[in-house]
Nucleic acid binder design. Structure first.
Lengths: 116, 116
DNA sequence: CCATCCTGTAAACACTTCGTTACAGGTGTA
DNA sequence: TACACCTGTAACGAAGTGTTTACAGGATGG
């Protein structure tokens, strides 16, 4: 497997996703086995809408994946599980990743607010 | 040396410090050698006050260290350099770190806004 | 039909973060 | 004196983030 190194932008997104106590706990809990949203919310002790938002961020960063499945009694249940990520954070590694950063300063889409 | 694993809270702080394009670039630049604030600001292309703020965050997270030195012509110059951090981010490692999390939900200081 | 379980999303608010501008001081040199 | 460096910090606005509450639907079982 040996996942390819992420780009600078992807790395920032991953780090931002993990840089939150609640999201860190979500990943930690999922590391113990897959689970569906409502149950996971009860397990951790947060509201479902809140968990839903955090899971979206974690999934966007590629740290977890969700699959919609049907239970025996026909309910639609979304199961999440952790991906096999493996990041190494050292100064040289970060220097390498920084080479592929595309947004050093917040630049928005073209044609929005050009001055003279 | 083999730095001891940080606590969950410390890990979150480190990740939050690195989860920013500009700060990532700062660490990347310092990985190439120590530098003082004003020069580093010109190098990267940001204002000094802004760089100052980011350096404080990086230092608070233990990723860089700053030392105030006197140059040959007597100017006070603050040199920053990266520390020898080495973090491994995997699901099991995060699960281990999450055990030492002390702030699952944002709790602010006491006596601020108690209701009846 | 009503209750209970699952999903998703939008509105509103508090709070933090990011960035600029402006100011404070220090030293050494023309 | 004025200028060119260096440091630090406070004030302010813009933008992003985290959280709650409320609402939308679909499927099963009494």
């Amino acid at each position: 497997m040996t996942a390819a190194e992420p780009t600078g932008d992807e790395l920032v997104e991953m780090l931002a996703a993990l840089a939150n106590p609640l999201r860190l706990r979500i990943v930690a809990t999922l590391a113990g086995g897959r689970d569906y949203v409502s149950h996971l919310a009860r397990e951790i002790g947060v509201s479902r809408p809140l968990l839903h938002m955090h899971l979206r961020r974690l999934e966007a960063a590629g740290l977890v994946t969700g699959t919609l499945e049907l239970s025996d009694d026909g309910k639609a249940m979304k199961y999440y599980e952790v991906t096999g990520f493996d990041l190494r954070l050292t100064a040289p590694a970060l220097a390498e990743a920084a080479k592929t950063l595309t947004r050093p300063d917040p630049e928005q889409g073209p044609g929005s607010k050009e001055h003279s």
